[in-house]
Structure formats: C-alpha cells, structure tokens
Design a protein around this nucleic acid. Sequence first.
DNA 1: CGCGCCCGGCTAGCGGAGTTAGCTTTGAGG
DNA 2: CCTCAAAGCTAACTCCGCTAGCCGGGCGCG
Lengths: 191, 191
Amino acid sequence: MPRAGLNQQTVVSEAARLADEVGYEQLTLAALASRLGVALPSLYKHIRGADALNQKLSALATAELATELTTAAAGRAGGDALRAMADAYRAYARRHPGRYPTTQRVPDPSDPEHVEAGERAVGAIFAVLRGYGLTGDDAVDATRALRSALHGFIALEAAGGFGLPREVDRSYHQLVAGLDTAFRSWPARGA
Amino acid sequence: MPRAGLNQQTVVSEAARLADEVGYEQLTLAALASRLGVALPSLYKHIRGADALNQKLSALATAELATELTTAAAGRAGGDALRAMADAYRAYARRHPGRYPTTQRVPDPSDPEHVEAGERAVGAIFAVLRGYGLTGDDAVDATRALRSALHGFIALEAAGGFGLPREVDRSYHQLVAGLDTAFRSWPARGA
DNA sequence: CGCGCCCGGCTAGCGGAGTTAGCTTTGAGG
DNA sequence: CCTCAAAGCTAACTCCGCTAGCCGGGCGCG
C-alpha cells in the first residue's frame, strides 16, 4: 500500500478546494480525508484538528485576498482604486465561497504568515483611503466602514437575502458609489 | 412524574434565551432539552428538528428587531431617524447576540408571521429612506446598502475583528454619519 | 548494500449531536 | 369514569471529531 504523501500544505489547499465546492459549513474532516484517499485520523498527522484547519484556511484565504486587493488597487487612485478594490473583493468572495468566510477569523497571533497577511489586507485598504486624504483615526474608522459595507453585502448576498441576481450587481455598484461619496467628505473626528 | 407542559412557543422562547447566553453556535438541542428539564427526543413533539428551530428563532428575532426599528424611527426624520434606527439595530444585536444571527436567514415562505416580520423590518428602513427622497429602485439599492453596512459592522464586531472596544462606538457613529452623507446625494440610477 | 528507525498511514473505540421508532402514561373531555 | 390524543420516555442508529496505540515503508546512515 503506497503512501499518500500528504503534508500540511497539500491538506490545507485541498481543504480550500473542497470548501469552495461544498460550502464552508459542509467542510468536514471526514469529507476531506475521503477526498484525499486517506482515513480520517491520518489527517491528525498534519493538522491539529478541525479548528486548526479552519485557522490555516483563514491564513491562506487572507493572503490570497490581500494579494488580489493590492493588485486591484495598484496603479489607480481615488474612486478608481476604490471601485477596483471593491470589485476584486466581491469577485474573490464569489469565486471562493468556501474560503471567503474564513477571512473573517481574527488572525492567529502565533502564525506569523497569518498576521502578515492580515496586515497586508488592511494595508491595501489604507493605501486606497490615503487617496481620499484619510489618515490616522479617520483612516481607522473609514477602514472599518469599508470592510463592514463590503463584507455585509457579501454576507447578505450569500445568505440569499436579496432578490433578483441581475439587480444585485447594480446595488453593489451603488453601494461603492455611496462609499466614494462618504469618503470624499468623511466627517471630521469628534463631529 | 408530572409533565413539563411545553409547547412550541415556550420551546422557541427558551431557545432564544439560551442562544443569547451561550452563543448561537453553541445552541444545541441537547442543551435546550436539559434546560427545559426534558429528554432530547421530547422536543420533537413541538419542533420538527434543529433546522426548524432555527427558522422559528429567525421569525422571533426578526419580529423583535422590526418592532425595535419601527419604534426607534417613530417621530423622527432624516439623519435623526437614521441614527436612531442604526443605534437600535446595533443595540439589539448586542443585547441578543444569540438570536441576532438568525435574522439573516431568509424568511420561511410558508410561515406568514415570519414573512410579515421581514416585511415590517424592510418597511421601517424604507420609511427612513423616504425621508431622504429615496423611492423605487433607489430605495431598494439604499436599503441593501444600509443593511450591508450595519450587518457587516456587527458581524465584524462580533467576530472580534476590531481592536479597542472603546473606539468601536466612535467608528460606528462615523459609519452612520457616512451613510447619511451618501443618502443625501445618492447617485442617480444608471449613473 | 543492508539495516534501523521515524513518521505517516491504519484500526479500534469514545463521546456528543441529531434523528427516528415505538412504548408508556398523563390528564382533559365526553 | 373511561377513553384516547398527545406528551413524555428509552433504545438505537448515523455522522462527526478526537485519542490511543499498532504497523510497516522507505530514507539515512553505517
């Protein structure tokens, strides 16, 4: 009986693929093991358990998302950058419906790659907001607003909270336009 | 051995209390049964199963939330109404961390009370947006934007995605102010 | 080239969650 | 007072995560 030749890398990336196929909620160690042609307990040689797997998935997805956001914003500024980043954000969530939810997990402080990925993601957002003249506490507030709006939209969309799919694109476009408006005249702190 | 005297009403409302105490993820039929002083399978005399319970919980929470939103907006208009409604929304989510997540479920079409509760909630939002002169498709887009922003913020907050708790209030305040700005000059459709 | 040992696979078995089947018994209404 | 529907129960099954402990493949070193 030849060995499967797994390692943490292959386990996590296959888990990511599986999650995208069957949905985050349906991602199970049993399904993953069977997909990898291995008995369930064998996974424990590579990963500490279900929770650790989700954490690693979060690190992977956060890194991917950070890269896409950075790429989207590169070479653009202001509203252009904002729209490009927002589109990239939603596109990632739609392309990877299983791994996207894991990006909401707070990064594991003991995993340097995870922490770095999280910093890259907010760094990309900060860079765009700097184009609106937002820095310091204002940038913190605006970052939270941007993340809230985009994540909220995607969560509602994924939950089926909206009606006709065709119209959803327009609503997203309007949301981003609204953010642009808000950032242009972001209320002064303490206002 | 005297009967416990349960019915669907008492089961669901106790589930709501339990969910708020232990968290939505930790709400389990086993825990609920033990809380009600009954064996687990007995619950099936009142509820079809775990999924049906969550659906009923959703109906309950949606109705409560709709009432709070309506009350908050009553007698106010424009930015005042928006701020009051946004505060009520977040207050509900914080006061009922277990039942709030269920409000994201799409209403069960076969449960008239659930459907009606959902309509009341978006009706309350529509009424506030009408104060900004938003109607028709614009109101649909703006409603989605508002729900996205508020829900997204609460989701990130609950996930621990923000830092210092003290600052979070300010960020929420700024988010709502940004929404006010956006709604004041909501981009024309087709823009 | 051969041999030892590490490590990645396995089987067995536990506890917890949800669900179903089918029995018993309470207690309200005729 | 007696019937009977409904409300409780026990037992048993499935699926999931996890732990313990065994086994053998194949790499590294003598």
